[in-house]
Design a protein around this nucleic acid. Structure first.
Lengths: 243, 243
DNA sequence: TAGTGGTCTAGACCACTGG
DNA sequence: CAGTGGTCTAGACCACTAG
């Protein structure tokens, strides 16, 4: 890491320093619990003043990348995917914000006609006789499956849902565009995945998973009913409230 | 804001500066969209160097208290809407609302002194040297264990925590009374319980559990850090958002 | 142009950790 | 003790906004 490149192009030094450290972490060169160079060492190697290095590392700590212990050193923190709990985030955006690559595979995309019994059991409170689209998509983060997204969508409100290519744009993003939710409900549970789900997520049947049921309405009309499954070992949900 | 008080007691200047600003905002003296004093003015009035003022204001911006515009000034940001979603429910009330009976058992109640390493690793961002109370309580619904509640509490803010009888009133209720949270953070995961936890919850080691880390602040001072474990088979987390 | 925030520096003192 | 991060300072230059 020669100091030359660091001082040429315009961009705050503390930002370039942060990016450099994030890159090392995401490339795996600086792995979990790795003791990264001290502030003094980075000052020397990068020819940047300590206050600037300090700011970069302090911000990385508050962003969850580093653990810093006075008198000991700075260490790479455990990295887990995180999802905003009650903010309906787009998983593709989340993954990209972490500097990873998102991809997805559409397993099912069909029109269905539920009878009342099925509708009740699956908690689909659509109006009787409403045509419904059913999709099942697996999302990957750097080729590792991190979420199964199974949706039942109100075909009357979003008739073109079934025509979309959801490897290019997530259902979340599409729906937010054509029929943004005004209300929603979440139910979160810890469960074991069934055989098909284990296979899609490439996990062990004993691995605990987060299961989220999410129903959204747009002006009191139900738009979609979603079941999301995350492997517990690869995902966290995070939320903040207040101020 | 005389500079005298600011330089007497020990506490980082940037933190005292942040606190001073938050107080003005919460008292209403500095209301929504109010243009607060510039860095240069605070430097003069507080007799603190600009870098320190800058850090305080920069952090307040990233925490959502301020909006800062280069060349213009710093303004009080809009208060975020309270999300009923994250209404921190009292488990005793929840259980009683279902018509069941709640009881609890206090397993641990002690004062501890964390060193920095432990504190960092456990994400306990208490101020260095802050005395901390540690409690571990099991909650029962009709004699069936449904939650393990492990708390680390700021003993400086809530000195009488350790004197309470938490079989009579939950920590949640007590804390809401003496130091209501103004901000909070949740992290939700699916995990397997460890041996002690399985024993306390009377579950099988293979049963998936919901793990919730919840940290709460009162006016930017951390109040408590809680780890909640629910057996997946006996508990769901529910939330609603929107109009 | 004057005022604002954005960044950077070189050096300083401190508290804490480990050997 | 030496090494580490935590904080603070005084001054500097810059980019941006407004009048």
């Amino acid at each position: 890491m020669p100091s030359s490149e660091f001082h040429t192009d315009p961009a705050p030094l503390y930002l370039k320093t942060k990016q450099m450290i994030i890159n090392k972490i995401q490339s795996g060169e600086w792995y979990y619990n790795f003791k990264i160079p001290s502030e003094a060492e980075l000052v020397k190697h990068l020819s940047i003043s300590r206050m600037t290095i300090n700011r970069a590392m302090r911000e990385l700590m508050s962003e969850g990348y580093l653990i810093r212990i006075q008198g000991v050193g700075s260490f790479v923190a455990k990295q887990k995917g995180q999802s905003a709990l009650f903010k309906v985030e787009n998983i593709a955006d989340e993954i990209q914000q972490r500097g990873r690559s998102h991809s997805s595979q559409v397993i099912i995309m069909e029109t269905i006609d539920l009878n009342d019994a099925e509708s009740s059991i699956k908690r689909l409170d659509f109006q009787q006789g409403t045509p419904i689209y059913h999709s099942l998509i697996v999302h990957y983060e750097d080729k590792i499956p991190v979420q199964i997204e199974e949706r039942y969508v109100n075909a009357e409100i979003v008739p073109e849902y079934i025509l979309q290519d959801f490897t290019k744009q997530t259902p979340n993003k599409y729906l937010n565009h054509v029929a943004p939710a005004t209300e929603g409900e979440h139910i979160v549970e810890a469960v074991l995945a069934d055989k098909q789900e284990c296979s899609l997520l490439n996990i062990n049947p004993k691995d605990p998973c987060l299961l989220i049921y999410r129903r959204t309405w747009s002006n009191a009309i139900i738009i979609s009913n979603t079941k999301l499954i995350y492997p517990g070992s690869r995902y966290q949900l995070k939320g903040k409230f207040g101020l």
